[in-house]
Design a protein around this nucleic acid. Structure first.
Lengths: 346, 346
DNA sequence: AGCCGAATGAGGTACGCACCTCAGAAAATG
DNA sequence: CATTTTCTGAGGTGCGTACCTCATTCGGCT
């Protein structure tokens, strides 16, 4: 298979080059206490000079343990949540070979205090890092801050927590997602004036708010002949969803666009389908799930704007790991893309 | 940071459970010769029984060397090729920490025999695996076959080599990409009948052929009122490109769509721009590059259909690595997506 | 039964680092 | 100056595997 005498400098070489002992090199490399600032500087310079790079493979092995990461997710959810949980499981299985232990934790998301309490129960003894999917509210923000102080690394997952650190969020720019939807709806509708309906679970979540803002800004600027109706909330209720959809379709004869803004599109799609194949001329939803894929195939949806759950999960794990090992990440690899799906690129 | 006594079974445990020695376990795990079939079976069962999983971290370390991978790329190319080379460099830098050495090799792609010769010069002593971006021709196919026989792992990169093994290609389904473009062009044009122009470097490459097939099939079926002109080849020549574009625009007053099918869109875009901001009502190109991004922003392009170069490179590396270590890959992670870019989701 | 090659065991070294202890040196303190 | 505190060095052990050698045993053969 070919030998590869990389002959990369090791910690031993580094110790020699810096004129210190292995113990000191170890202290510097791992940020342990008990090293004079001047000595640290000496070692740092030696690192530069000989081009030392840590061997993460050996380090992980020597640490004789892997990392334990958790994903804090809402208890209630439909298809998209299950896609994510699936990917967490999948990533967990692959990760075992690399000494990773990954699991999903479900918390009640109706009450932010409940979520905050669940976060408060997490200890650094059990978990090295958590990815948190939760609405941005003061109690949760505090809980996250305390979690960090306790030594547990965190990233905001899908729902942004407006962190000062930009590398602490794994997800898309929802305002851009809203603009993207606006562009597609507008282009697909064409020149005709008309009305666009927007439906979502709840506007409590930042995600929905941002998407709506992006949509409005874009439509008003680029397609002034289109009118976007106020957002209708279903609160995840099936009967209410059917009700809302029926009312919209009945009251707006000039309905040209239908935007399912929440991430769980199954029930709204069923409600839409109940009114015939093309109740709304142009329909767009979010997230790739069995329901949205089927709807694209059936022509019920024109496009789906989504973020890849597998990418999301793997990215969160990579970022948490990088934080644990106190090293930099490849930003370009962690940028989650706003994907546009149509029937042809599924 | 919290202890994590995984206590995963080790090779030692496995040896004990199987009632064999460590040496035998090693022979079985690494597929070395000198083990009776019955003994192999015993060990396999023990693996199942105690739930043994190899520790890749320890294995990589013990192997005391990493892997050396090469990317065989054409010498001539413009922006997209540079994006790819950039990502190869970036991945190489990150990979050094994981004992990977990755480099790009440029070969003359005008003559397949030249490429084949370059592949013939690669030896397992210098390289553990190569990702090959080259047209599918008999000499190259043979060269790849011989390369494998010599013990060098290979994957086809971006350009499919129609391999029997589906896990030997990293790239998109170009026929689906053609359909995707067809869908977008058709929807963006709307109901109007009209003509679509198609321009590319060369139809010699499978990629272009497949894209064209996908486009034609889709347009004929779904938008019969649109007529797709024969593909025009530029052969990478700037003057010829300007010429071709001028001729098309002059001769087709009903031109509604313009499809830049090759992966290097810079020169065609310049030629198009020379005729005013919206010479063609709907224009689509491939691959995200500075030129296509600028064109999207300027409104010269309506959409860009692309495959992420970073994902491509990392995926190729992961697959090559998995082949070297003789293990399975996560198929879903390696599926390259056909991405649709518009101004809003850049 | 005797022979031979194939199969297996025992045991070692190495990989590059984390993490530990303890003694001794250097620096800061009074 | 003596004493405390802070730094530093030396050296060891272990992580889970790869890879090597050499001796031994087994199975199938004549």
């Amino acid at each position: 298979m070919g030998f590869c005498r990389n002959m990369r400098p090791t910690t031993k070489d580094l110790a020699e080059a810096a004129g210190v002992s292995l113990a000191t090199v170890d202290r510097v490399l791992n940020g342990r206490a008990g090293v004079r600032a001047r000595t640290v500087e000496t070692v740092m310079q030696a690192i530069q000079k000989i081009g030392f790079e840590r061997n993460h493979v050996a380090a992980t092995l020597a640490r004789r343990r892997g990392y334990r990461f958790g994903f804090v997710l809402p208890r209630d959810g439909d298809e998209y949540l299950h896609e994510i949980i699936d990917k967490i499981r999948e990533t967990g299985e692959t990760g075992r070979g690399e000494m990773l232990e990954i699991k999903a934790l479900r918390v009640d998301d109706h009450d932010p205090h409940e979520t905050a309490r669940a976060l408060g129960a997490l200890r650094a003894e059990d978990l090295d890092g958590v990815a948190i999917m939760a609405p941005e509210t003061p109690p949760i923000r505090d809980a996250i801050r305390r979690l960090r102080e306790r030594g547990v690394h965190t990233v905001a997952f899908i729902s942004d927590q407006q962190d000062e650190d930009p590398q602490s969020f794994v997800g898309i720019d929802n305002r851009a997602a809203g603009r993207t939807v606006g562009h597609l709806i507008g282009r697909f509708i064409g020149q005709r004036p008309g009305t666009i309906a927007v439906i979502t679970d709840t506007m409590q979540a930042r995600d929905s708010l941002e998407r709506r803002l992006g949509l409005d800004a874009f439509i008003n600027r680029t397609f002034p002949q289109l009118r976007v109706l106020p957002t209708l909330e279903t609160h995840g209720d099936r009967a209410r969803t059917f009700d809302v959809v029926r009312t919209i379709l009945a009251h707006h004869r000039d309905l040209e666009g239908f935007y399912i803004m929440g991430s769980e599109a199954r029930v709204p799609l069923e409600a839409l389908a109940a009114h015939g194949p093309r109740a709304a001329p142009v329909a767009i939803a979010h997230e790739r799930t069995p329901a949205t894929v089927a709807a694209l195939r059936a022509g019920l949806l024109d496009a789906v704007v989504t973020q890849d759950p597998g990418h999301l999960v793997r990215s969160a794990v990579r970022i948490l790991r990088a934080k644990c090992e106190n090293r930099a990440i490849v930003a370009s690899q962690e940028r989650i893309r706003i994907e546009i799906l149509i029937e042809e690129n599924l």
